[in-house]
Amino acid sequence: MSSGEDSGERNPFAPPPPGAPDQPWRPRVPQPPASGDRPDGQPDGERPQPPGWGPRPEPGPPQPRLDLSDPAHRTARNALLSGFAALLSVLFGLFWIGFPLALLAVWYAVTVLRVPAEPVTDPFAPRPVRPQVPAALSALLTGGLALVMSLATFTMQFAYHDYLDCVDSAITKEAVHSCGVDVPTWVTTLYEGPAE
Rank of each mutant, 00 (worst) to 15 (best):
P51L: 11
D22C: 00
S35K: 02
G52P: 11
P48T: 07
D37S: 08
E46M: 13
G45Y: 05
P24F: 07
G36V: 00
P30Y: 02
Q49S: 13
P57Q: 12
R47C: 06
P39G: 10
Q42L: 14
W53V: 11
P17A: 15
P18V: 11
P59A: 04
P33A: 05
R28G: 08
E46D: 13
P39E: 12
A34D: 07
W53Y: 11
P51M: 01
A34P: 03
E46F: 12
P51E: 08
Q31G: 08
P21G: 03
Q23R: 15
P55Y: 03
S35E: 11
Q49H: 01
G52A: 14
G52L: 13
P24C: 08
A20M: 14
E46H: 07
W53K: 12
G52W: 00
R56N: 05
P32M: 01
E58M: 14
P51K: 08
Q49T: 07
G19D: 09
G19C: 04
Q31D: 10
Q23A: 14
P18A: 15
E46Y: 07
P27E: 10
Q42H: 14
A34M: 06
A34R: 08
V29W: 06
A34L: 13
A20H: 12
E58C: 06
W25Y: 12
V29R: 14
G45D: 15
G41C: 11
G41N: 11
A20Q: 13
A34V: 08
G45C: 06
P55F: 03
P16I: 01
G36C: 06
D40P: 10
P30C: 03
D22A: 12
P57V: 13
R56S: 11
G41L: 09
P50H: 02
P39L: 12
Q23E: 15
P30D: 12
D40N: 15
P21N: 05
G19E: 05
E58I: 11
P16N: 05
P51W: 00
Q31V: 12
P51I: 01
G36F: 00
E58V: 14
G52C: 03
P18M: 08
G54E: 11
A20V: 03
P18E: 15
P17M: 11
V29A: 05
V29E: 14
V29G: 01
G41D: 10
D37W: 06
R38M: 12
P39M: 04
P24W: 07
G54P: 10
R26G: 05
G36W: 00
R47A: 14
Q49K: 08
E46N: 09
P33M: 01
P27Q: 10
R47M: 09
